[in-house]
């Protein structure tokens, strides 16, 4: 076993162990942090599988953005943990059976009979001056430019949907009313006062007070 393989299996074990901790740990904040560890290990695996750009993106997007979103929501909501814990043991056998059935079905369909590696010849590796990022950008902006734009539209829809779902109008907060702002006329705000010119009034400051 070479050194790279050792690192690979090490991170694979770390990923599976932290994923196991995610589903068994009691506290939701701890689960979110173990999920971050899972993603870090997955990023290391992707780096070893020659997907350098995606590994960095995984750390930036998942650990940077998605995990912060999870932690933000978990800490914003006041969750009663003891009440949620009740059904865990009772549901565990059902969960195991259903999960094993699903995995067995997948292994049957995507098994060696249909997708065996003997059916394909293994290609040779990339040359030394191969750039993963450059090649990814070349394919993404030529062959896959239409799905790329669709993904952008989906992200825009997600932004609008998330804002409109989480937006809450409280009665006490002050809002602008654009209708009344537009409907305002000059006479509502401005009063022109005619002053007599030429006759200077002596100002007595003491009286003014």
């Amino acid at each position: 076993m070479s050194f790279e393989q050792f690192i690979f299996y090490l991170f694979a074990a770390a990923m599976l162990g932290s994923a196991m901790m995610v589903i068994t740990v009691r506290n939701t904040v701890h689960a979110a942090l173990f999920l971050a560890l899972t993603f870090f290990s997955a990023a290391a695996l992707w780096l070893l599988l020659e997907a350098e750009f995606l590994a960095i993106t995984l750390v930036l997007v998942y650990v940077g953005a998605v995990m912060v979103l999870f932690l933000f929501v978990v800490m914003m909501l006041d969750v009663n943990l003891a009440q949620l814990r009740e059904g865990f043991v009772r549901l565990l056998p059902v969960g195991i059976v259903v999960a094993l059935l699903a995995i067995g079905m997948m292994a049957y369909v995507v098994g060696p009979g249909n997708f065996g590696l003997g059916k394909f010849a293994e290609p040779t590796g990339h040359p030394a001056d191969y750039s993963n990022t450059k090649e990814l950008g070349r394919v993404l902006y030529t062959v896959y430019v239409y799905p790329f734009e669709i993904a952008a539209v989906i992200l825009l829809v997600a932004i609008i949907a998330a804002i409109s779902l989480a937006l809450r109008k409280r009665p006490l907060t002050k809002h602008q009313n654009p209708d009344s702002q537009i409907a305002v006329r000059k006479k509502d705000r401005l009063r022109i006062v005619k002053l007599e010119a030429g006759t200077r009034q002596p100002i007595n400051l003491e009286d003014k007070r």
């Binding site: 599976l16 589903i23 978990v74 549901l91 565990l92």
Partner: peptide, 13 residues
Amino acid sequence: LGLMAVLVRRNLI
């Protein structure tokens, strides 16, 4: 493991 989390846990998050 992810499927187990979906099937077993009661918490939406």
